[in-house]
Amino acid sequence: MNIQVDEILDAKGLACPMPIVKTKKAMTNLEAGQVIEVQATDKGSTTDMKAWAESTGHQYLGTVEEAGVLTHYLRKASDAETKQETKHEDVEQLLDLQSKIEAGENLTILDVREPAEFAFGHIPNAINIPLGDLEERMKELDKDNELHVICRTGNRSDLAAQKLTEKGFPNVKNVIPGMSTWEGPTDKNN
């Protein structure tokens, strides 16, 4: 799996609690929203990373194990994400979206999470353009289609929906809450 990250931390060969301590340090140098890859050989590090993310509010994306190396992916949370402040008016409930998909409707789903988040599970056929790249990649999208914008909890997709509306997309829906509670089928990788 080829996953784009902002920072790579080599914690291979280190025993508990060093992978966590090093991750904590590396995380302070990241901007909110950035993704870090932590390479570790400590077998307990997967459960520790999950617990640590739970404690600190950062987002644990997933782990890939290959040749004895555990590669963990984490995303730094921002304060804004924990606050719910939805402004885009046209919202769509996640369950309604799921029913439409199950009914076989042909929808355009735009997933604005980071590629690393997208790689670990997304709605089949969703298009991935991270929020930060939306401005310049907007032209890849067809204005005639109804756009269903989704992220993890509904905040980034809200910002994306506002931005798209502002740029003249007539039919944009912000799907809430988002992939964090999605129970339908998912695809992995890109």
Partner: peptide, 12 residues
Amino acid sequence: FNVATAAAASDA
């Protein structure tokens, strides 16, 4: 020290 540093690294 393991428990203490793990806790501190978790923002406690």
